[in-house]
Design a protein around this nucleic acid. Sequence first.
RNA 1: GGUCAGUUAGCCGAGUGGUUAGGCACAGGUCUGCAAAACCUGCUACAGCGGUUCGAAUCCGCUACUGACCUCCA
Length: 503
Amino acid sequence: MKSNTELKIYNSLTGEKETFTPIHAGRVGMYVCGPTVYNDVHLGNCRTFVNFDVVYRYLQYAGYKVRYVRNITDVGHLEGDADTNEAEDKLAKRARIEQLEPMEVASKYTNGFHDIMRIFNALPPSIEPRATGHIPEQIEMVEEIINNGFGYEANGSIYFDVPKFIQVKGIYGNLSGRVVEELQSETRDNLKKQDEKRHPADFAIWMKAAPEHLMRWKSPWSVGFPGWHLECSAMSRKYLGETFDIHGGGNDLKFPHHENEIAQNVGACNCGGANLWMHANMLLLNGKKMSKSDGNTISPTQLFTGDSPHVTKGYSPMVVRFFMLQAHYRSTLDITDDALQAAEKGYKRLMESNKILQSLTLKGGKQTEIDNEINALIDSTLEDMSDDFNAPRALARLFELCTKINAFKGGQLDINQITEGSLTRLKSTFNDFIFSIFGLQDESVAGEGGQSALEGVMQLVIDLRAQARASKDWATSDKIRDGLKAAGILLKDGKEGTSWTKE
RNA sequence: GGUCAGUUAGCCGAGUGGUUAGGCACAGGUCUGCAAAACCUGCUACAGCGGUUCGAAUCCGCUACUGACCUCCA
């Protein structure tokens, strides 16, 4: 542990921030609900995964060995009314529309999802299991649930008996705050549709496949496919154990998905799955939920290219990632063009300050008030992250350090007012935060190989311009500066010469 | 309709019962050949109405509004 502060995490299950104590000292098991791969990944989905990427990264930084499991749902997730014949598997529907095998659809969108995650610099999970790769485990779980009396068969489909579960275990609704009596009264109008389910709150754990259904497996009850919630219960248990540390996902999965997941786990092995549930909040566009039907939506690609009426220009992936870090994961985040522009400048300022910091040196530094301030800021940055992963607050502290760093360079503050040890600590912590914890990348750095050649060229150009300036040849000097700006390179004249940066 | 969350300065967004969040924008200044960058200073807000308190943006209640979930959704 590089931080002495204990880690506190908000637990959706209890509604309180709790001191995090892993089941096995030094190790963390974390499961995050991954995407259903029937379409291009949604930008809001990206926010959730970026948030959990930071959680994953910070846990590792804090010294934990983390097993991070994030699934790919490629079967079972129904679209439409799941209780009528109109229900259709999301992947199967897509396969029909695109005239592809369901697995082609899954592969296509899984690849697309991975591409976007890589672009956002999200680390791959330790294990990325697929629902279709775990059919036996899911069938086994259905059997367990039936044997424990919490499942019943109707026409080849198996349903989870929620009223029975409530009667015996009494925990259904603890996560989402639902009361099943209310659910029943709310859906009474729809009761006539539910010919198979005994209770409207019941949900399918195994579905008998209609003849035209493309995805089908043999089971003791019918040729069919598993229910949507089941794969997470089965796979989290398989890879993380009957009880594990953290389960995460988007806020909108809390009910019914996560509530049912818990019910399945408890119903199968009398184990509750995760000790701690984390939910990332929604991403809004112009103050409203993204919705394709309203046109209030933007894809990651559109955001990068600027090809959308919602933005005036394209924003780089790291700017978007930085933008996401500026809000707490449990708050909604409103994506607007103005906010993105602000984030773009903030991101550049942060990256630039880090570059400056890494080049700072001192001779004969001593401990002063400034030294104390800097160390206090570093400490609070770590404390902020340990307080329910408060990235925006940690980022604010980093910006306060930026001001100091820039002042050291500009000469407004004397670098020798801090000790050698503090400078070293500042350099490593600042660097770790930006790259290892926040997972940002420096987009101003050119690709491999090109950088050193460009450095040489730039040094030459800057020298030539310095000569022109020395002889007060402003025309040449300004021509160089303006020409470089047009090429996307900014020159900065400082006290100790000129430096440059990519725009 | 039910449940839950939120309403913070021009914009985005943290936050705690009493002290400057931060970013961006804006204004003034320093520096500069000019500019940019950087630094300094300023702008100092907490939906409305009540209540608790010596003191509330922070706790409680009501109202208004927004959003999420209740149906596929990260």
